[in-house]
Design a protein around this nucleic acid. Structure first.
Lengths: 153, 153
DNA sequence: ATGAAACCTAGCGGACAAGTAGGGAATATA
DNA sequence: TATATTCCCTACTTGTCCGCTAGGTTTCAT
């Protein structure tokens, strides 16, 4: 799992937007960049992706900027990561369920699919709102509280 | 989760080795390449990594080749992937537990750590032997049998 | 009209992935 | 002892992506 800078920045910018309860004021990209602590010009490009994917809408001109296009409770991290980074899981450039092995590696595909499913259970079931409020789903919190979850390996 | 070709090949070669019950006959790299269906010269380099990491031992000269250095029941996929591909999970090049966020993104690190823990539970608890025999751990099998696990998203 | 903002295209430097090529060193076997 | 075999090492190629910057054009509120 390689979360790119793009993806990390995208999530953080969306969180800043989600923070604002008044859904009518647009936030310029450089304000978001400053508040999220990410490179301004780079974020501009990322916001373009997020707009095309329907996560945010934009207004041009003065007093323009970006706004969340969907409620934060309905945007999952998984969705955001996919639009910015592509598929959550790949094996040699293929989707896990499209891999095919014979002989001794026959059951390998099952493991890859299981790994992806495990990822999905975390990322597709956690919303911006939950991250914002620190109220993560029970099974996600459980994962993070596993004995060595915060240890290096 | 991006399983590289290197990592995929490494696992497949190890599985071919694990297939052989007689632990005394060495298998030349080009035999492994043929039987695993991977580029020969490339595999040679990968086997070098696996040797340095202690997964296989090697013998030079005629009737030389590679042998498993540890029992297949004690080699997990996670270990193999780490030696070949580096850390299982990274966020902007950092380890998940080393990320630090403030403000609205404060709880993001917890999600990244949870995602990594979920991955670990699949990859660090599945051994070569289990893959070889199709006897995956119960919770891994359960993941792969989740409703849409084999569907694209 | 003017300034603020989104939007678009282009490019750049570095890293990495997936190999390939070729040769040197060790070693079992004839 | 000769020889074929195999590991082992270094280097190189080719392409792609990542992170980021630059500079201009269009749209729009005031």
């Amino acid at each position: 799992m390689d979360i790119s800078a793009r993806a990390d920045y995208a999530v953080r910018a969306l969180l800043v937007l989600a923070e604002d309860p008044t859904a009518d004021r647009a936030h310029p990209s450089d304000e978001l960049a400053r508040r999220a602590g990410v490179p301004a010009k780079f974020l501009e490009a990322i916001l373009g992706d997020l707009r095309r994917a329907g996560f945010v809408s934009s207004r041009r001109g003065s007093s323009g900027g970006y706004l969340l296009a969907r409620p934060p409770a309905e945007i999952t991290l998984g969705e955001v990561l996919r639009t910015v980074d592509g598929p959550l899981a790949e094996v040699r450039g293929q989707r896990p369920h499209e891999t095919h092995y014979e002989g001794s590696a026959e059951h390998l595909a099952t493991v890859w699919v299981a790994a992806r499913a495990a990822l999905r259970r975390v990322l597709d079931e956690t919303t911006l709102e939950q991250v914002l409020e620190g109220r993560l789903p029970e099974h996600v919190r459980a994962m993070a509280e596993l004995p060595d979850a915060w240890e290096s390996r």
